[in-house]
């Protein structure tokens, strides 16, 4: 939340000045549409970028859809969209379709996320879980077997566990199962699944013996009713935070978020090229405004480099 006031101020000022003058004072003078679709996790980021970009370029309309990472690539690879938002890298099958249709693209890493394992704020026995304990709890073999906390760790009480998590369509589910259970999509299925993370928030905060997982921003917004579990992947317990996600210590649940601009769109549509430049140069403030974990310096340099190579500016 800390980043919001500054952004609000600059936006309000820009709004006051921009309304009457129109596009004449912005110099770049680009206009048209920028169409993006894809991951609902990345949507807020691209939406903020679009909103801030519009303040400088009122004639450009940036629109964002939430078809999911896979659904986004489906449209992207037939040329329906200019930019695809993704919470995981493009997969081999998707690459092939893009290739077949002659869609060339660049992968831009634009923000970080920390998948956060949460328990209720009333939970007084869990502060840290090892990745092995998480696997014991979530692997397919745990179904109907691991039902009480003492089965995960003998120090925990013999109380029944209530599990919450995202549904199988979610990129968060794909990433978590891949990192924890070793295979994408492999998970026990006897948990309360919801595509709406707010449902998981309510479920976990309502019970002392509940556990769930989702993206970091949902934890940040609900830090008063939830407790983030520290993760131990062999080098000690690390709490999820902006810092630990940036410096790579929050393994294995820190993940990169991407946008995939189409090269053809960048070359033929000046507004897409200008938007990518804006996105890369202001990525830090965009991420903070959207309440995402920004890139570290090295990642930021890589992004700017890749973006300028793409747009040729």
């Amino acid at each position: 939340m800390a980043a919001v006031p500054a952004a609000v101020l600059s936006l309000t000022l820009a709004a006051c000045g921009g309304q009457s003058e129109g596009s004449s004072d912005t110099g770049s003078g680009v206009s048209g549409e920028v169409v993006s679709d894809g991951s609902s996790t990345v949507e807020p980021l691209t939406a903020v970028a679009g909103e801030l970009f519009k303040e400088e370029n009122p004639d450009v309309n940036v629109s964002v859809g939430t078809a999911g990472t896979g659904g986004g690539f489906e449209k992207f690879c037939i040329g329906d969209t200019d930019i695809s938002n993704a919470s995981r890298p493009i997969e081999a099958g998707e690459k092939k379709i893009c290739e077949k249709n002659g869609i060339d693209y660049t992968e831009l890493h634009v923000a970080n996320d920390a998948l956060t394992v949460v328990v209720s704020a009333d939970n007084d026995f869990v502060t840290c879980l090892t990745t092995d304990e998480l696997q014991t709890l979530w692997e397919p073999a745990a179904e109907d077997e691991i039902t009480t906390w003492d089965q995960v760790n003998p120090d925990f009480p013999a109380e029944e566990i209530e599990l919450y998590g995202p549904g199988t369509d979610s990129g968060t589910f794909d990433y978590f199962t891949d990192e924890i259970n070793g295979e994408e999509g492999a998970s026990r299925s006897d948990y309360n699944a919801s595509e709406d993370d707010n449902v998981i928030v309510q479920g976990v905060s309502g019970s002392q013996y509940a556990l769930g997982y989702f993206g970091f921003s949902y934890y940040e917004e609900n830090a008063d009713t939830l407790k983030a579990v520290e993760i131990d992947s062999g080098d000690g317990c690390v709490a999820p935070s902006a810092e630990s996600a940036q410096d790579g210590t929050y393994t294995p649940l820190a993940r990169p978020l991407f946008i995939y601009p189409s090269k053809a769109a960048v070359e033929t549509k000046p507004q897409v090229s200008a938007f990518i430049d804006f996105y890369a140069q202001n990525d830090d403030s965009i991420a903070e405004t959207a309440e995402f974990i920004p890139l570290n310096e090295e990642q930021q340099a890589t992004l700017e480099q890749a973006a300028s190579e793409l747009t040729g500016s």
Binding site: E43, N61, S63, V64, G65, G71, K75
Partner: peptide, 9 residues
Amino acid sequence: LGGLVFVSY
């Protein structure tokens, strides 16, 4: 059909 969720026009 891909109805958009963020539209500012």
